[in-house]
């Protein structure tokens, strides 16, 4: 099995322009030769990928293939893990993400993140959304802050549901509402890119549908990089898809193309449920 994989991986190298954007869209983030190690183990090998404005790019692939690790490189959240080492060139609108000059804290403000399991802070709904703007001093008055909180909740499609109890605990919401609260929290600091790590895997189908609708709206203003295990979800919400396999980026392309006519054997097998 390993030999076959290795062969297939070698085959991949034949494709050119892996991960680059073919259309004339503006590139927001680009990654060149990304390698990630956990201690001795290499989790990602020579990943090249570009993220364009106003697009949703879905990272797909079997569990443990490095999708989440890759996502967490983009806002340097892997820095918090002692044994993790990242190499390669990462840039956000031309700035080197991993350079010594980069202020990690501001980087994370520009690259928002939504996690797999909704993780609202044990504070009120209002305080959850106001958390980011407060620590970054985005607003200058209480009124401005109130407006920003309302706007963020509104854009996350949550305002109607919670406007009467905006000061009750964020943890009292349902799972889907909590996840939308986390999205509102992320967009309140006006990021350029939003990273989503399986944002719907802990949610029921109705909540999932709402989040997907939300992602569709959000992509007008933000670049979204999303890890998902659901093929149908990737097909519904993403414009481009990237298939990861055992730490390699096998194939990137328009979602439609990836799903209907993948160039690589491994991708085809995965899409048709024969791997992972």
């Amino acid at each position: 099995m390993k030999n076959i994989d290795q062969h297939n991986v070698n085959q991949k190298k034949e494709f050119e322009t892996v991960g680059s954007i073919s259309s004339s869209k503006d590139v927001v983030m680009s990654v060149k030769d990304c390698n990630v190690f956990y201690g001795e183990n290499q989790a990602l090998k020579n990943i090249n990928l570009e993220v364009g404005k106003s697009e949703v790019i879905a990272l797909i692939g079997p569990s443990g293939c490095g999708k989440s690790t890759f996502l967490r490189c983009l806002n340097r959240l892997n820095d918090t893990i002692d044994s993790c080492r990242v190499t390669g060139e990462f840039s956000l609108e031309g700035e080197d993400i991993y350079s010594g000059d980069m202020d990690v804290v501001l980087l994370r403000a520009r690259v928002g993140m939504v996690f797999q399991k909704p993780n609202p802070f044990p504070k009120s709904i209002y305080e959850n959304v106001a958390y980011g703007p407060k620590i970054h001093g985005i607003t200058s008055s209480k009124r401005e802050l109130d407006e920003l909180v309302d706007l963020s909740l509104d854009r996350a499609g949550l305002l109607e549901e919670v406007k009467d109890r905006i000061h009750s605990p964020g943890t009292s919401l349902s799972g889907g509402q909590q996840q939308r609260l986390c999205i509102a929290r992320a967009i309140a600091i006006k990021p350029d890119v939003i990273l989503m790590d399986e944002p719907c895997s802990a949610l029921d189908p109705i909540a999932t549908e709402k989040i997907e609708g939300l992602i569709n709206e959000l992509k007008e203003n933000y670049a979204i990089v999303m890890v998902t295990h659901s093929m149908s979800q990737a097909a519904r919400v993403s414009q481009r898809a990237a298939y990861f396999h055992l730490g390699d980026l096998i194939e990137v392309g328009d979602t439609k193309k990836i799903f209907e006519d993948p160039e690589h054997e491994l991708t085809k097998n995965y899409i048709h449920g024969r791997t992972g």
Partner: peptide
């Protein structure tokens, strides 16, 4: 205190001490 709360706060661009003061200690 769940690691996810720390990551949520770091992910919003909070520093370590801000995270401790505003998220971890209250929790």
């Amino acid at each position: 205190v769940p690691q996810s709360l720390r990551e949520g706060s770091y992910g919003l661009g909070a520093t370590k001490s801000e995270t401790i003061k505003k998220v971890i200690l209250p929790a």
